Simulated scan of single mutants.
Amino acid sequence: MKNLIGKKAPNFTASAVLNGKEIVQNFTLEQFKESKYVLLFFYPKDFTFVCPTEIYAFQERIKDFEKRNVQIIAVSTDTEQSHLAWLQIPKEKGGIIGVTYPIVSDINKTISYNYGVLSGDLIFCNNNNEEWVANGELIAYRGLFLIDKNSIIRHILINDFPLGRNVDEAVRMIDAIQYYEKSGEVCPANWKKGKKAIKANHSGIVDYFSS
């Protein structure tokens, strides 16, 4: 997997569902450059089990992200029609009705590949038929990327399929990024907004400051 930390986030143009009801064909990541931070998260499949718990968990905290000027974007390798159908089904029946942030279709697998979260492999079999075969499902792992307003990736988390993500940790990392940008002070282990941060002086000794 290529290392994307500190590098420009790969742009994409793809179909997406907006506000839980509208399909658009040319949704881009680049539209948020210089105006918003982006929390981009990948999930494996529509109509599954862990995925809706994560999708709703981000929706339930959407105001916390909005007040931090963060745009949430979800991506899976399902079609935009599949996303839209899932968005019409009530939560108690396994759906994700009520989710308002964009859900992108990566049907060509290129977004997942460019972000290093595509599972499985395509293998060329040099037999009589010279076939390409898939080794494992070509779907996205549970990747999460925090992207700053300059389109630089500042935080990456990638989980295996059975392991759901922690939304509180995503909020904490946004706070850490924004605090560092504002103050120049770095955030130690287990730092939370309102706790002490660190500033290195010219002697190389660190000083602790309360935020």
Rank of each mutant, 00 (worst) to 15 (best):
D168C: 06
I96G: 02
R154C: 09
Y179N: 14
F145N: 07
Q178C: 09
I147H: 03
R142K: 06
K8P: 01
Q81P: 00
N150Y: 12
N114P: 03
S82A: 12
C187F: 01
V24H: 13
S112Q: 07
Q59V: 01
I89H: 10
W191S: 07
L118I: 14
K8W: 03
K21Y: 03
I23N: 11
N166V: 00
A134V: 07
L84V: 07
K63I: 08
Y56P: 08
V24N: 11
V17P: 06
T79D: 12
I147R: 02
L138G: 06
K21F: 03
I139C: 00
F58M: 11
K7A: 04
S183Y: 14
Q71S: 04
P188S: 08
I5V: 14
S151K: 13
S15N: 14
G164M: 08
E92N: 14
I158A: 10
S151W: 04
E30R: 10
I158Q: 08
W191P: 04
V117L: 10
S15C: 07
F27V: 09
G184Y: 00
I205M: 10
I96Y: 00
S82T: 09
I111C: 02
D64M: 01
S119P: 05
K93Q: 09
D106I: 00
C51E: 00
A200C: 10
N166A: 01
K195M: 13
S15H: 11
V70Y: 02
Q31N: 01
R165T: 07
E54M: 13
N150H: 15
I55A: 02
G120F: 09
S211L: 12
T77M: 10
S76G: 06
L122W: 07
Q178Y: 06
D207W: 08
L4H: 11
